[in-house]
Simulated assay, not measured.
Amino acid sequence: MTDFVYRSVMRDIKQNILKGNYEGMRLPDERSLAEHYQVSRSSMKRALGVLAEEGIVFKKRGSGTFINPLYLKNQALFRYEGSNLGLTDSFKWPGKKQTIKLLNFHVVKATSEIAQDLFLNEQDFVYEFKRLRLLDNQPFLIETGYLPIKIMPELKPEILQSSLFNYLEDEQNKTVTKAFLNITVEPSNSEDQKEMKLTPTEPVGVMDGIFFLDDGTPFEVSNMRVHYHYMRFNTFVNLNR
């Protein structure tokens, strides 16, 4: 799969930040960075923009772009890479490898609720899939998702065994940039206990959400049940928007 230029630039800048290669906690100006990486100004601007949105760097008007000291103290809070809101990136844990096991995948007619959430007709069909996510060999999340066939008519089971959102960006140049999430905690059910090796008295975190493409199109309705050991929610608030 292709790797967007700005992603490679972002990775290298992050590595240079962690190595302490930027004097005074300040990055070179945009033009100098573009020349150094031999990329266009627009690619460089996007890379710096995403780093700023993630909270890794911040721009001080008239002074330049600076490194957020909190990033150096705890990189785990800033672990997402790219412009998508996918779980594969947002649930990365240092030293642990994430894998995905596809539990089921089929086409169903949209219920009235799913049709409403995805702006479909009730006669439209959607993909329904269930995935189990693991960190090393520990199952930590059960994800049930629904997405319109018309957005990804080529969806195959093997695509769902890795990051769906990154596939969408790499292969279709579309990004998932917005989401409405409802986050709660509730007792684990029998499936949670079986798949995530929980006892009947252990709870799960529950995230229900609707994810949107950058053009505003609803892309997926998802229910995620998370092992309580891994239920961490971090956010970066930008009040300029």
Rank of each mutant, 00 (worst) to 15 (best):
N21L: 08
R26S: 03
V176G: 09
T235C: 06
Q38P: 01
L134C: 10
S42C: 00
P94Q: 12
S63F: 04
A76G: 06
K45H: 13
S8V: 09
N166E: 15
L147K: 07
M1R: 13
K109W: 04
V39H: 02
I114N: 12
N223I: 08
N84G: 15
K14H: 02
N137H: 10
Y228P: 00
M196Q: 07
V57S: 01
K197D: 03
V57H: 05
D136Y: 06
S32G: 00
R31Q: 04
M152C: 09
E35P: 00
E30N: 02
Q172V: 01
M152D: 09
S188H: 07
I149G: 05
A52D: 08
R11A: 14
Q123K: 07
S42W: 11
A47H: 06
Q15S: 15
E23I: 04
L85R: 12
Y37I: 01
Q138E: 14
G55F: 07
E171G: 03
L87F: 15
A76R: 10
L85H: 08
F105Y: 13
K178L: 12
M1A: 15
F66V: 02
E122Y: 03
R232P: 00
K197Q: 08
G145A: 15
P148Q: 02
S32P: 00
E53Y: 10
F212T: 03
K109S: 08
E171L: 09
K19E: 15
V176W: 13
K45L: 10
Y127S: 07
Q38T: 12
T235R: 13
K194Y: 00
S40H: 05
L155H: 06
L70M: 11
F233N: 12
F212H: 15
M196V: 08
H106K: 13
R225C: 09
L181I: 14
F233G: 00
T144G: 09
K92F: 08
R232A: 12
R61E: 11
K194C: 00
Y22H: 02
K174H: 14
N21K: 12
R61G: 01
M44S: 06
Y22L: 01
T201C: 00
F119L: 12
P139A: 09
L103E: 11
S112E: 14
H229V: 02
V107L: 13
M231C: 05
Q75M: 09
W93Q: 14
S42L: 09
L77P: 00
S40K: 03
K92D: 02
Y71G: 08
